[in-house]
Design a protein around this nucleic acid. Structure first.
Length: 256
DNA sequence: ATGGCTTGAGTGTCAAGA
């Protein structure tokens, strides 16, 4: 089973790229972040025609997450339970016995800001919920835009980013809390090229100069990590006209 | 140089992203 995550930065704008990418890569499951639309604006019909059923947790202008699948989606769940949050950042479902959790994690704006405090509270709530999900679903994948670069090697200029948003120690500790649940960063299960990133700033020719961060991740429970045969970043869509600033990340799982 | 692009909202210009 091939699973993927992609922050599309507006599904309305990126739908042609998404449809081309689905046809080229034929993933079984795709988790989308920043659809930036309500359910009524979601392109269910176009995705159905491409062979995908979809579920969406939509919001106007900001956020919005979706799961696309070639297989039936079961036990659909939206939002973090018992966490009061109007922002639509979580959708989950079970596909072929694998619990898929799609997350658009908060950006945080600036270290010390209100949004940063929200970010840290949000991560704590997600971690607490995942601990319970893992009891019910030992085969679990957490995919999406984490808005955290876990290590200095995930940052093009670690000195410039030291202590800054996406790289601060409390954020990295929040990422490590996922690992402490027994999840593995699928990308680091394999040898990877130096300076591998998943996001590049639109400004300053960030992509051409590879001034990026690796902030989009696929974490796998131990039962799933044992079946993982590859984990990569697909930079091809980032090279297109009018791209998302994020590239899709992809992991392949051996069938059980 | 705290800017630089892109998007959605809405039609002038700003918030938000990372």
């Amino acid at each position: 089973m091939k699973i993927a995550a992609w922050n599309v930065n507006s599904l309305k704008v990126r739908l042609p790229h998404l449809l081309d990418w689905l046809a080229a890569q034929n993933p079984d499951v795709v988790c989308l972040q920043e659809t930036k639309t309500e359910d009524k604006g979601f392109p269910f019909a176009a995705l159905e025609a491409a062979g995908y059923t979809a579920i969406h947790n939509g919001q106007k202008t900001y956020n919005g997450v979706a799961i696309l699948s070639r297989h039936p989606l079961e036990a659909v769940h939206r939002d973090i339970p018992d966490f009061d949050d109007p922002q639509k950042r979580i959708i989950a479902a079970t596909v072929n016995g694998v619990r898929i959790v799609c997350a658009y994690m908060p950006n945080g704006s600036e270290v010390g800001s209100e949004k940063y405090e929200y970010k840290l509270r949000w991560f704590k709530a997600l971690t607490d919920w995942l601990r319970e999900e893992l009891k019910q679903w030992p085969r679990l994948a957490l995919l999406g835009d984490y808005n955290i670069a876990p290590e200095d090697r995930d940052v093009h200029d670690p000195a410039a980013w030291a202590g800054k948003i996406l790289c601060s120690e409390p954020e990295r500790a929040a990422f490590k809390a996922f690992l402490d649940l027994g999840l593995s960063d699928s990308f680091r299960l394999f040898d990877q090229p130096e300076k591998s990133f998943s996001w590049w700033d639109y400004r300053m020719m960030g992509f051409r100069r590879n001034l990026g961060l690796r902030i989009d991740h696929i974490l796998l429970s131990s039962a799933l990590a044992d079946t993982c045969v590859s984990s990569t970043v697909d930079k091809v869509p980032r090279k297109l006209e009018r791209p998302s600033d994020h590239a899709p990340v992809v992991a392949e799982l051996r069938d059980q």
